[in-house]
Design a protein around this nucleic acid. Sequence first.
DNA 1: CTGAAAGCGCTTACAG
DNA 2: CTGAAAGCGCTTACAG
Lengths: 325, 325
Amino acid sequence: MDKGQQRITSNDVAKASGVSRATVSYVLNNDPRQSIPEETRKRVIREAEKLGYRPFTPARVLRAGHSQIVLAVLPFEQVDPGLALGLKELETRLVEYGFTLISYVGVQQLASKIHPSANVTPSVIVSYGNEKDPAIASFLQQFQVPVLSGMNNQAMQQLSGKTQVDYLVKQSQRHIVFAAPERQDVQFVVQARLNGVRQGCTGHGLPSAPVFVVPASRPAARAAIQNLLSHQPGPYGICCYNDEVAFAVLAALTDEGISIPKEAAVIGFDNIPLAQFSIPALTTMYFDGQQSLDALVENILSASRGEATRQVPQPSLKLIVRDSA
Amino acid sequence: MDKGQQRITSNDVAKASGVSRATVSYVLNNDPRQSIPEETRKRVIREAEKLGYRPFTPARVLRAGHSQIVLAVLPFEQVDPGLALGLKELETRLVEYGFTLISYVGVQQLASKIHPSANVTPSVIVSYGNEKDPAIASFLQQFQVPVLSGMNNQAMQQLSGKTQVDYLVKQSQRHIVFAAPERQDVQFVVQARLNGVRQGCTGHGLPSAPVFVVPASRPAARAAIQNLLSHQPGPYGICCYNDEVAFAVLAALTDEGISIPKEAAVIGFDNIPLAQFSIPALTTMYFDGQQSLDALVENILSASRGEATRQVPQPSLKLIVRDSA
DNA sequence: CTGAAAGCGCTTACAG
DNA sequence: CTGAAAGCGCTTACAG
């Protein structure tokens, strides 16, 4: 069945350099318990290179009993830009320890088909969704490996919502509104953020913020905001779920001729690269997860060895003040 | 070393259901060449489920000699939104055949560290970069599996550039400018797009389009565009590398008080979700890769069996006319 | 219809 | 210092 060239194995390298497979393995893995003469070592390495030998990972993993793969489970349709950045950093960090980060995005549909897990054998999972959701829980469980929580917990999300309100209120007293996306895949986070916003309102003795679901089309967004604003006199303070929602709100406001930030102040979340180029430039916030990242990496390493993990510190919240609020 | 629970193997299932490992395998893989009594079959399945048995993939792959993994190699820092969508679709399609799509983003740095390939064993690679780049070529080569070209070739990119010009010229005669991003990771594509734009200029008897490198910060972008526009009288037609660049151009133009599209028309590329929310709403284009996707999936399947692949048809180019051009 | 056995490629005690 | 051997978990000829 398998046409084409044969796989090059450690056996080939052994033969080519006139040693046993054991010695090849010792040399290539730099086993400190063996002392191989420099000459032999050189020869093995040279032959391996010449043959283009790559150890066949599945065999190695079978032997070791566990892979060096970390799986990030992201149960949303799209990865928010802020999260994408964090994952990239995590990946870079893990590579230094010989680990590879693999992401599953939009697990809900995938899980229902042939289990994608069939092809990937992580030794640790980092979960960014609601682990209490039974569908997600059972998806995670089937891997039978430790599951860590990514830097995306409810407490953090609430704090962000609250901080948006704090900033808006500090600027001047406003009717606080929470702008939510239509997409359903992320409502878990939306809820947490909303809770934070409402908590902020309570803290400032303000009425509870209404939810403004921002339509995904521009004319609809405009109509919706017109309707929203007609209910109450301004000025408004609009806490957006993220920068993408904020762009839609900005456009709707502009189309309606509402002046920003005077009549309606808008604050986003994520500080995506595009945020500085909105009109007006978007005031926003983001998580600076450096220390949390360190802790997460440590936990991943521990978990992969079967050791206990520690509490990850909250990332700190950064505010970027531009022109929209 | 390995603490915690033992792995559940097919042996456990065999013992629990009072059959041999062979039978377990036959049942669980639905081997059509065996006729197992319905009762035995039921029992095996039940026990496997009860024990939560999952075949250990590395062992399976070692036996089979090849995985069911397809690796997408994306040698850029970030994945453009249009590409991200295409990958998502590809993944969905492949899952139906039992394959898993895994992406490596930003391979240039990764490749220089511990070879990430050590942990992943694809049976086919889909490459979205410049395969003639020696660094990329050697990265791809080490996997020793068939490499297919993703839907991202130069001819396509050129056509997009040319089509941008065609549209702009059809609207009215303008000084054509090509707006390129600062980021270096994607210059391979930028060049192809630029070639297309210049080809379009030539076709219409226009002078060759100058390249406007758009700074990543708003004030710098504004200063740069002021400088650009001072060289020649308008009106301008600005072909942007993608929608993100277009957002920056729009902001710079607006800050300079240039009227869009009258004095400067702007056309983007990708039709990202945010495109409709720019001010003014962005005119842009994108690839509709449906038929190409079918062909790519077929090729992946063929290649994984060691069979020959066929030419992938060009995706068609869609124009979205909004207000910026 | 079922089971004992071989073998995929690797690493690592173990014997020399 | 080096090599023969065992064994990770799986599937699949092969023998019965």
